[in-house]
Design a protein around this nucleic acid. Sequence first.
DNA 1: CTGTTAGCGCTTTCAC
DNA 2: GTGAAAGCGCTAACAG
Lengths: 329, 329
Amino acid sequence: MTRQPTLNDVAVAAGVSLATASRVLNGSDRKVSATLHDRVMAAAQALHYTANAQAQALARRSTALVGLLLHDIADPYFSGIASGVLSAAVARDLRVVIADTGADPDAAVAHLSALRGERARAAILVGSRTTDRAGEKRLAEAIGQFTAAGARMVCVGQPGLPGDTVVPDNRGGARALGAHLSGHARVAIVAGPDRLRTVRDRVAGFRAGLGHPETTLVSAEFSRDGGYGAAAHIPDGTTAVFVTSDVMATGLCTGLRERGLRIPEDIAVAGFDDIPVIRDLHPALTTVALPLADMGSQALHLALAEDGPSRTVTIPTRLVIRDSTSTGS
Amino acid sequence: MTRQPTLNDVAVAAGVSLATASRVLNGSDRKVSATLHDRVMAAAQALHYTANAQAQALARRSTALVGLLLHDIADPYFSGIASGVLSAAVARDLRVVIADTGADPDAAVAHLSALRGERARAAILVGSRTTDRAGEKRLAEAIGQFTAAGARMVCVGQPGLPGDTVVPDNRGGARALGAHLSGHARVAIVAGPDRLRTVRDRVAGFRAGLGHPETTLVSAEFSRDGGYGAAAHIPDGTTAVFVTSDVMATGLCTGLRERGLRIPEDIAVAGFDDIPVIRDLHPALTTVALPLADMGSQALHLALAEDGPSRTVTIPTRLVIRDSTSTGS
DNA sequence: CTGTTAGCGCTTTCAC
DNA sequence: GTGAAAGCGCTAACAG
């Protein structure tokens, strides 16, 4: 546990001033003679010098930190987006501070405050789902304080909050899927919480594409278990189900199967998002594909904007028909 | 984009000294009179003051940062562990800087160096799989420099590197699975890269439990596609396959099915890890269960140790028999 | 109990 | 081209 070498140590070892050492080691436009440059580099190398990021941040009044707030990193939807954020971040030499917000809206508020303390350049909030109006308001307020400090806020998949937004074309994608299933007479929808704009858009789009009203609407948690539980509420005779997310659909399929229903012979099932694993379900799941990693990268790019007004990036979707609806249409 | 209020701003607003403001706002054991305390709190509240984490770190010579380095956050094995790390971190008021290391061993080296610059308290490295000896050596060296600075290093699922270690009982778990499949005469193993100790332990344990040699050993990438591709190399007549990870097994099942094989009637399949989604495969996959989130929390706890020698935590495993091997045994 | 003051390690004018 | 010195915002002795 030796003390980390400081820039001063390097300067002394190289026989130059602090300023010179700083100029050669940490990108400055000022010129330094080749001789001194090499001496400093050699000294830094020998001492295994690494600049103290905190001290730099303090002196420079800026950091390379970006916050990534997501509902649950273990959920493939979120980890897919996170993956895109991480790869874009490393390409831009940014560091990512990550946190799960879970079901608690105030968790996001708390993390936003921490990020403000860390002087993060930006924060990316992915699909925080808040249960209460009051919580949502506190969140909006926290975002306001965060951006007031000069930081950038990007929300992914959840429009309506201040800041930049990356949203899929939920309505359009769902409409295409509805059209795909429009041949079915008895259609059920398993929807996540109605308060979520995402859910509403997907349901509305699906209905528009279907062309006739669904026979059943089941509301459930936006999780695998939510979908699993919803299986019990699908009426006999239903021939197709649209589920507002793949994660839910995955659970639903298991639940339907336990009821003795065959997919797609007895009942077709389609989801939304295109998380990787659904092509390995049996049958593989029809879905509306989202470029998850790409959404993450785009969010990071928005996060880098120096200033300017809020922008919204709409992500196009793509209908992917697989075996879970093969007898449909 | 107003300037963030500083502690000095708060002190002035409250009419107290910098020191007093510091004492009430940022936990000190020193006592402050109730009057001043309240005045400071009120001022801080009014200004939306949040301490500059960098300045604190510099003055305190310590941070609340922990690094989390994983192969690929989009892989459910890693995101499961990450989830445990995050929940343990938030409970201890630690911040997590995350990065994917991918296939490149030097990515881990680079991130470790960045973490050193950030004066992170500890780093958790999850299953970095390096291809070359030289890279591994550079990694060990980077870990050496990291810990020399007084930071703690924890490796998860990958013994052999300096620092603390969290490893599952791969051998024991695989042995139980081998015993479960010992009734099969023609057994194949689909193994990840042989250079990985994890893979070797799982293969060795499985063989010990099986009690007789397997008929085929297929080597593949430690990924879904690796497993998928391996399906082509399973000889006809094989009645059971052990795959060294669930992610690979997931791909393998799809590949086998495309060959027209029924699971488990024609061929039983078993994996390892118990990632959440495998219970929703059809048939649900038999596996050796690992408490992924728990492993992550344990890693974080090891990361918090003040000092002392390296420790190793062995994680017990549990055989979970599901339908993919139901005709086996 | 409260205030003064010297740093923490680095960047950045401003002189030389 | 190089160096001296003044901070960046906060903590922690050290005096009162």
